[in-house]
Every structure is written in C-alpha cells, then in structure tokens.
Amino acid sequence: MPDDHTPAIHDLGGLPRFHCTPVEHDEVPPDAFGKKVDALRQVLAQKKLMTVDELRRGIESIPEGEYFALGYYERWLRSIATLMVEKGHVAKEVLE
C-alpha cells in the first residue's frame, strides 16, 4: 500500500499486521471499570453532552503507541475525558 494510502489507526479491515493472529476466544465479561466507563458514556450521551461520533473521533486521535497499548475501555475513558475538557465541562487538571 503506498504511503499516502496508509489507513488511519482504527481503520483495521484487512491489515496484514494481524494476518496470522488467531482470534482469541476471550469470553471474560467487562470488569467493574469497563462497565462504569460504558455507563458513564451512555449517561453523557443521554444528557446530550457528547455523541458516539465524538467518542469515536476522540479514540481515533489517540497516538498509535498508546492506541494499541491501552485497553478497550481505557481508550473510551481517554476520549471521554478529553471531550469533557474540550467542551469546558471539567478542568484540564482532571487529565493530569
């Protein structure tokens, strides 16, 4: 694939880097942390404070090294926190 057509970080369809990676049949349900992040996102969406599209945009802007190192709901949390700061609902210090 030419350089100028390198897909964005989250755009994973067909990427050769995962070609030989078996799908791990992980059936562990979300932990308390994940469920709480999940519920927080829903509450904020219900209150019209963020959309799922904004959540995704925030996840997609996580730098590559962190994107693959963070867990699923850790990426969500990072995005939600950044959005809440961006929108002025919480102070920047919350991220530090």
Partner: peptide, 15 residues
C-alpha cells in the same frame, strides 16, 4: 465479547 472488539477479528473477518 472481547473477541468481537479484538484487532485480530476486526482486521481478519473482512479479508
């Protein structure tokens, strides 16, 4: 489930 969200499933299922 976690496998549905995994990088391997997301990249390979379509190809």
């Amino acid at each position: 489930p976690n496998w549905y969200k995994s990088f391997a499933y997301r990249s390979r299922a379509v190809r």
